[in-house]
Design a protein around this nucleic acid. Structure first.
Length: 391
DNA sequence: AGCCCTTTGAAGCTA
DNA sequence: TAGCTTCAAAGGGCT
């Protein structure tokens, strides 16, 4: 399988994903870098201290520099800055985990030069460098009602006792909450009404119509910020990260409500099951969601397994900065997820029964399935199958 | 109906 | 701590 820059740091998504950027030419752009650091450090601090996500232009400019090496220098510099900021911030920020990330690269290209106001609650989007529409960040609603340990979700969650694992101000810059609290957020507070995921004219899924109300068109990134006890917004918009434990999501429903699967079945009322909080999507999953329709249109494929193979190859073909957009987006999602569901663990979604059964099956199969799959992949000559197109 | 496939990444578990 | 497993999305295919 083709790998980017096999010389270390290939795992862009790992916690130290940008570490590899260290050893690459830092002298290339010192002048620009200095200008950048002063400006963007101020931005960064501002974004950490202030709940506004402003100063789009400078950030955009940084992202649009586009040169790979420059980007690496940028990452490295930012890592240093972030460490510094992390210290200033009382260590709330998990520098080891995310220090390499260019937090400032998140911009909102659809907002003409800083039209986003601190209270606008616009969804942050990632600068798209290859013509893709913006991938909006998920706006998790408040877990206020979900987490019993959370009497309320203050605007500044750092004040929330017992929650130390994320830097809320950073998030607040992207998921800025209105001064009066999340309940003031209205459906109009979404990003620009452009299709989130471009669909071919043939139309694969209809819910992306720009004419649809934003509140229902973009399920995962719904701005439904208030939840009821079952993950439902008072307006009826389900929370994207909460689904009933009823197995696979129906895709159409998913498209409308991303994480949340409505449970209209009256049968369910008998046994009120715990709503399932889904894992936040990782970078590749976000990429897949965005590009799946495109691949389907291009390749006229329907099998997800085949589509995912293509997407996997394309993922590896992305530049680091292109991937970084998704890593950053995923990081934001994780942060927000952690803020909203501080007591949630990925383990919560482990199906113990199935897990045991599968393990038994694996044992009886005489080997580990995934290992077999990996071995199979390794047997394939990656150099002969680099097609990013339909095969 | 429910699992498999197929991808990458994050998180959890185990030795 | 390294290595492995599970889950996240997706939807056709299969049992």
């Amino acid at each position: 399988m083709p790998q980017l820059n096999s010389g270390g740091g290939d795992d862009l998504g790992a916690n130290d994903e940008m570490i590899s950027f260290k050893d690459e030419g830092e002298q290339d752009e010192k002048i620009q870098e200095n200008a950048f650091t002063e400006r963007d450090l101020a931005d960064l601090k501002s974004s950490l201290v202030n709940e506004s996500e402003i100063n789009q232009n400078s950030n955009t400019a940084v992202v649009r520099r586009g040169h790979h090496d420059e980007q690496r220098v940028y990452h490295e510099k930012h890592r240093e800055h972030l460490e510094d900021v992390s210290k200033q911030d009382g260590g709330m920020y998990k520098a080891p985990a995310y220090s390499g990330y260019p937090f400032l690269m998140l911009t909102d290209p659809y907002l003409p030069s800083g039209t986003m106001s601190p209270s606008s609650n616009k969804v942050s989007v990632v600068q798209q460098s290859h013509g893709m529409p913006p991938l909006p960040l998920l706006q998790y609603p408040s877990a206020d009602h979900f987490n019993p340990n959370s009497p309320h979700l203050p605007t500044d969650m750092s004040q929330k006792p017992g929650i130390h694992r994320h830097q809320s101000q950073d998030l607040s810059g992207f998921y800025s909450l209105p001064p009066g609290g999340v309940s003031q957020i209205s459906p109009s507070m979404s990003w620009q009404p452009q299709p989130v995921y471009p669909l071919p004219s043939c139309g694969f899924r209809q819910p992306y119509s720009s004419s649809l109300p934003s509140s229902s068109s973009y399920p995962r990134f719904s701005h439904s910020l208030m939840l009821g006890p079952s993950g439902m917004h008072p307006t009826g918009i389900p929370h994207p990260a909460i689904v009933p434990p009823s197995g696979k999501q129906e895709h159409d429903q998913y498209d409308r409500n991303m994480y949340a699967k409505p449970h209209p079945e009256p049968k369910r009322e008998k046994e009120p099951k715990k709503p399932v909080i889904k894992k936040p999507l990782n970078a590749f999953m976000l990429y897949m969601k965005e590009m799946r329709a495109k691949v389907i249109a291009e390749c006229t494929l329907k099998e997800s397994a085949a589509i995912n193979q293509i997407l996997g190859r394309r993922w590896h073909a992305l530049t680091r900065e292109e991937q970084a957009k998704y890593y950053e987006l995923a990081r934001k999602e994780r942060q927000l997820h952690m803020q909203l569901y501080p007591s949630w663990s990925a383990r919560d979604n482990y199906d113990a029964g199935l897990r045991g059964a599968r393990e038994e099956k694996r044992k009886s199969d005489g080997g580990k399935k995934k290992r077999r799959k990996r071995e199979k992949q390794q047997q394939q000559d990656p150099t002969t199958d680099n097609s990013l197109d339909c095969s």
